[in-house]
Design a protein around this nucleic acid. Structure first.
Lengths: 340, 340
DNA sequence: CTGAAAGCGCTAACAT
DNA sequence: ATGTTAGCGCTTTCAG
């Protein structure tokens, strides 16, 4: 049988103090005498009392919950981010309320409305964009939002991500230096800022060498679509000798099509490079040359930006693009004389 | 500037009805006249009002939040489970509050206490076990708990998982039928029920054929430990000709040590089998023969068991061990005449 | 069907 | 430092 909930009143009664004394004991920074504290501590312990966070939040206006909107956990960049975000926030006394939402399912707005219903202190958008209407609503509700791994052309929105342009540019430079002639691209979903920035940076690198994309297919960040893109791109004469796949997640499927369906050698026949540096990229079966998104740094910046916004609602929005280093492994031919 | 929060009182005033009428309008199953409903709907819309779930929960005693305790998102079984659980719960009007906790870090008890502070309606333990003290506390607080992918010897605890014993047994039968002579095991963390059940089932299969484990090392469910275990086990004469690695996550690292460090062929020199059937197991670079945990079914059962417990606190606990089918791929030699 | 009133468990003035 | 009081925003009797 579910025992009755024990409240601060019960504790107060047992301890022989007022209910506010109990509240004070559990409120950091409140002043209670040693004597009272001891009585409360004891009574609370025997009763197994702990403050009701929800009741507290009703009056303080802080729920100590952060809404996290996330979509594709199949892209292993996100589980990693989720784990780190959750742990970091937990260390600060916050907890993550998860909302699954896919951009394409078009339910973002509903989901965001629900989040707001829970009176979260802040929101992290780790997938999908914010309609300007919702953005306004959050603003109105006084709930700060930070975009994780995406950005929007709205200077009032805080966004933390990598320098996708520079990262992809480095990939292009690397491929060109290695002497590749027919350089292609398998793109992710074009609604994503990461895709647009990566492609822009990559093209910029090609252009700087007086080159352009030899071929381009759409992979949409989805395994099956990426596989089909790879087949269309490579199963014909005059195939590319290098391909930049817009993220590692797709790159694995592309590599597998090349090696196991088409019998091509990577990197001897074709070089493959990706973006993100998710854990499997380092697995020897792939050994993918890619650009690292520094998840730890991204999480740190996201958490600190969010807490800053929560504590200081007037704080300025900021956009951060972290440096994203090239990670050279074996899936792409290296330029001559490249230090191993 | 953060606009003042709009409450039901504001809506009532604008609509020219009582505050209770507003509440009723937003409470499913309450009776409001068409006329009132319309007035409220309109007023709420122009004000952008939505009920405060936290305030509601204070009186109803239901927060519509489920606490999810999870540890290792690097094992790709869990992101998948998390995504599906969250989506399924969302569809039922619940949301997931995430708590990262590692068994080994020993902070489970603190974490669970925190969860309870949030007045969650239920708890899913997707990692780590429950001390009997905490179990009692949850019971006392009237918060139902369901164990996901683990079980404890406590018939009062609801637990949803796979039939690890039978699954591993099938693996042993398969390996023996294929004529393997020196069959080894790389174990996961021995504190986990999954590990104990899998090993027991595997040994049972060997015993039924009058055999026993040729070698055994501890991988602890950790990549580096698993790699070392593989090196110790295989980098010497008289190495095993087959190995059951306790989960897919470790099996990938073991395969890579065998193939890329020791130059062995899988499955020609050694057969490798795993457990879980996480997505990369199907990637051609691994093509791992394994046992499938049916994540969808597990999630369905978990959600329905939890909701049942929430709605009907007197409901009996149940333990479910879902059938876990053998998935034959290419990482292990097949018995002669095995239907491809 | 509707409004008035009570109160969920807590914190935050306000006195003392 | 402590107790008293007044709500936080909502649901739920209770009258009418």
């Amino acid at each position: 049988m579910a025992q009755d909930k024990v409240t601060s009143v019960d504790v107060a009664r047992l301890a022989g103090v007022s209910q506010s004394a109990v509240s004070r004991y559990f409120t950091p920074g409140s002043s209670v005498s040693k004597k009272t504290a001891e009585k409360v501590r004891e009574a609370a312990k025997t009763l197994g009392y702990r403050p009701n966070i929800l009741a507290r939040s009703l009056i303080t206006g802080r729920s100590r919950m952060i809404g996290l909107v996330v979509a594709y956990l199949e892209n292993y960049f996100y589980p990693e981010a989720l784990e780190k975000l959750s742990t970091a926030l937990q260390a600060e006394g916050y907890h993550v309320l998860v909302f699954m939402a896919s951009q394409t399912a078009g339910n973002i707005d509903d989901v965001l409305a629900e989040i707001l219903d829970y009176q979260v202190d802040g929101i992290i958008m780790a997938s999908a964009a914010l309609s300007s209407e919702l953005s306004t609503r959050c603003q109105a509700a006084g709930v700060p939002v930070v975009l994780f791994n995406r950005r929007q052309d709205d200077p009032s929105l805080t966004a933390i991500g990598s320098d996708n342009v520079a990262g992809a540019r480095a990939l292009a430079d690397f491929l060109i230096a290695a002497g590749h002639e027919r350089i292609a691209h398998i793109a992710g979903w074009e609604g994503a800022s990461t895709q647009r920035d990566r492609e822009a940076g990559f093209r910029e690198g090609l252009a700087a060498a007086g080159r352009e994309l030899y071929a381009r297919e759409l992979g949409n960040f989805e395994p099956e679509t990426a596989r089909e893109a790879a087949r269309r791109m490579f199963d014909r004469p005059g195939r590319p000798d290098a391909v930049f796949v817009a993220n590692d997640h797709m790159a694995f499927f592309v590599m597998d099509v090349l090696r196991f369906e088409l019998g091509l050698s990577v990197p001897d026949d074709v070089s493959v490079v990706g973006f993100d540096d998710v854990p499997p990229a380092a697995w020897p079966a792939y050994s993918l040359t890619t650009v690292r998104q520094r998840a730890n740094r991204m999480v740190e910046e996201t958490v600190s930006a969010l807490l800053e916004l929560i504590e200081n609602p007037g704080a300025d929005a900021k956009q951060i693009a972290l440096e994203a280093p090239l990670i050279v492994r074996k899936s792409a031919r290296k330029p001559e004389g490249w230090a191993s």
